[in-house]
Design a protein around this nucleic acid. Structure first.
Lengths: 240, 240
DNA sequence: CGGGACGTTGACGGTCGTCAAAATTAGTGG
DNA sequence: CCACTAATTTTGACGACCGTCAACGTCCCG
């Protein structure tokens, strides 16, 4: 376990606008700084937390990239999401005081550990923090609605298109390119998230390349025709 | 719109243990009673709220049965859940102040309207209420993880088995039979929830009947062999 | 009694999973 | 730094599962 007592203030963190509420006073910001226990480094393939582990904190990603997954008894698992800088993990643990999924770093990462009892006590006093916590949980619920729609009613091409557009959009919001991205996960992990087998993911990538929609060099993806991807996502319509 | 200003206290509501925190003092209970604005009756096929509508309250179901669904532009939709007495709806609206799904009554229903600003202000003072709200949202996130697992990795039989077991378990927790249930939704709605076409749902029911696992008379279902259903859910294992 | 919504069943086809082999890359230890 | 092994990815062939289309049956409600 990599616990480093690196104390760095939210006030000087460039991820603040992603994981913290806006318009805080200096005093409020100071109290939030105090709330955050430590930062923790997580190496590639290491677990931040795992199913069954006691829950006591939420985690804000400072750098790096994670996947969360739920496992069945027999060892197969469903990837429930991919998380990047500024996003919050651990919400699954609140209901039962135990985590119900695994969080694994897909690249070397650093997270801010936010003890949940401190979040609760502070958000009783800082209204904007309280509302922010509610919004973060609601956002996760809405995000999962979108995944359910994807898994329940889209075909392979549509799923991969939606996946790529979502990734690149989130990366763009963090200052990265709108057209190029590096996949931090394997085809199998993409497949698990999208409810497809890795061969289908690979084949669908190949099809997109043939059609000139994307260029793929291993995990390096360049989106050539974003409109075509967007149309695929909507083109459940085409059946009419 | 059916707005009835029926004031009935949580303190005398038999759903309280499902939707409210335990161990409240009389005074706290009184304040929660005050928080709840009104009850609202919703007739079968009426909408409690719809996508795009302004969000301002959560809803606790007192009686009746709902479905929630997200829609695509072309009118098809994905059912994201079925809700029954004691469950909370509307969490999707917190993040953006607008609802992002539809909630439709599948039978005549009655809900308690809980203005969200009042929930927030009261939960700043009543710690157990604050924690309860967090738990409810976390529970919804975990539930959706389960649905993602179902949609992403189960076959038709496994999905329907999991669906029936989940329904009957929730009904049992409300004092209904552990083996008999009345489906309040159509085959198409079940299919939408499970990522299947209605014909597949119907065929799978028929298969269960042939195998003596359930008895089906329209929407009346009797579970004859719950173990067989449970095995189906786990028997992703059988592939090894 | 009749129309419409809902449910069942059959035939057929398409999408995607399975199995297998080869190619390419990444990782490890000498 | 290179060699070697493991992991990942690609591609093909084939088949199963489920979607599509269609017809028919059943139930409910006016």
């Amino acid at each position: 376990m990599n616990l480093h007592s690196i104390k760095v203030a939210c006030s000087s963190c460039n991820m603040r606008e992603l994981c913290m509420p806006q318009g805080l006073s200096d005093q409020e910001l100071q109290r939030i700084d105090d709330m955050i226990g430590v930062r923790r480094k997580v190496k590639r393939n290491e677990m931040l937390f795992r199913n069954g582990e006691r829950f006591n904190a939420l985690y804000a990603i400072r750098t790096g990239f994670f996947k969360t997954s739920v496992a069945t008894e027999d060892g197969r698992d469903q990837v429930t999401g991919f998380q990047m800088a500024g996003e919050i993990m651990g919400l699954d643990g609140i209901v039962s005081d135990f985590h119900s999924c695994d969080a694994i770093a897909l690249e070397d990462a650093e997270v801010c550990v936010m003890p949940f009892d401190k979040i609760e006590s502070l958000s009783r006093e800082v209204t904007s923090l309280q509302h922010h916590v509610h919004k973060i949980m609601s956002r996760e619920i809405v995000r999962e609605h979108g995944v359910m729609l994807l898994l329940g009613s889209m075909r392979a091409e549509e799923r991969l298109a939606a996946f790529l557009l979502n990734l690149v959009q989130r990366l763009h919001a963090r200052g990265f390119s709108q057209t190029e991205l590096v996949l931090r996960m394997t085809r199998e992990e993409i497949g698990s998230y999208l409810g497809l087998k890795l061969e289908t993911v690979s084949r669908t990538f190949s099809k997109f390349v043939e059609e000139g929609i994307v260029e793929v060099k291993q995990r390096h993806v360049r989106i050539v025709n974003a409109d075509a991807l967007q149309q695929l996502v909507n083109n459940q319509v085409a059946c009419h």
